[in-house]
């Protein structure tokens, strides 16, 4: 991890203790990366700005759930940001949902960011992606980095929606086998 890991960890810990100066510094340090993630996924500057504010409100309230010994602070922060941005995206995008009615219970379950994110994984993902055919690797990458939905991926790769989905699910199982080796 980068040199900033120790500092981020410290800032998150102090944020959990409601240290507002530490929280402000955490925003300075982590804000640009999280803003980049929001912009990339939401592709709308105004929406990304709103999202970033909500993400930091979330971070303020949930910083105490970050577990320093087993989690990289950047991974935890990114997960909070990505989850929030994807939720917004799926709530608005055509093709993001077959069922349109808003579900207020959606936020009721614990989010993934409160679960530990282990540090030890490195860049194995690149190796495993390279074992997929290039279009399939690209589909996985686009989904993760750009937030592409199945509808968008099916358009991009010019395959029927169901085909796209079984494609990607098979790729995931293959990836998972590779990562377990």
């Amino acid at each position: 991890m980068s040199d900033g890991t120790g500092e981020l960890r410290d800032l998150l810990g102090r944020t959990a203790l409601r240290d507002r100066a530490a929280f402000a510094r955490l925003y300075d340090r982590a804000g640009p990366k999280l803003f980049g993630i929001c912009l990339r996924i939401l592709r709308d500057r105004h929406e990304a700005e709103d999202a970033l504010q909500e993400i930091f409100v979330k971070i303020w309230y949930s910083a105490e759930r970050y577990v320093p010994d087993i989690a990289s602070p950047q991974a935890w922060l990114n997960t909070v940001a990505r989850n929030h941005a994807i939720d917004l995206l799926r709530a608005r995008k055509p093709g993001g949902g077959e069922i349109d009615d808003a579900d207020p219970l959606a936020d009721d379950a614990p989010g993934p960011e409160d679960r530990a994110i282990q540090l030890s994984e490195g860049r194995q993902i690149e190796t495993c992606l390279s074992e997929l055919t290039p279009p399939r690797a690209e589909a996985v990458r686009r989904a993760y980095v750009e937030g592409d939905s199945y509808v968008e991926l099916a358009d991009r790769f010019a395959v029927p929606l169901n085909t796209m989905r079984s494609w990607l699910r098979r790729s995931l199982i293959q990836l998972r086998e590779c990562m377990s080796r």
């Binding site: 640009p32 990366k33 803003f35 980049g36 993630i37 912009l39 990339r40 990289s72 991974a75 990114n78 997960t79 990505r82 993934p112 679960r115 994110i117 282990q118 994984e121 490195g122 860049r123 194995q124 993902i125 690149e126 495993c128 990458r141 993760y144 980095v145 990836l175 998972r176 990562m179």
Partner: peptide
């Protein structure tokens, strides 16, 4: 989450 996290590296920070 752990597996995919390194893919975030390609997202550039934005002021």
């Amino acid at each position: 989450e752990v597996h995919f996290h390194p893919l975030s590296d390609e997202v550039a920070p934005v002021d």
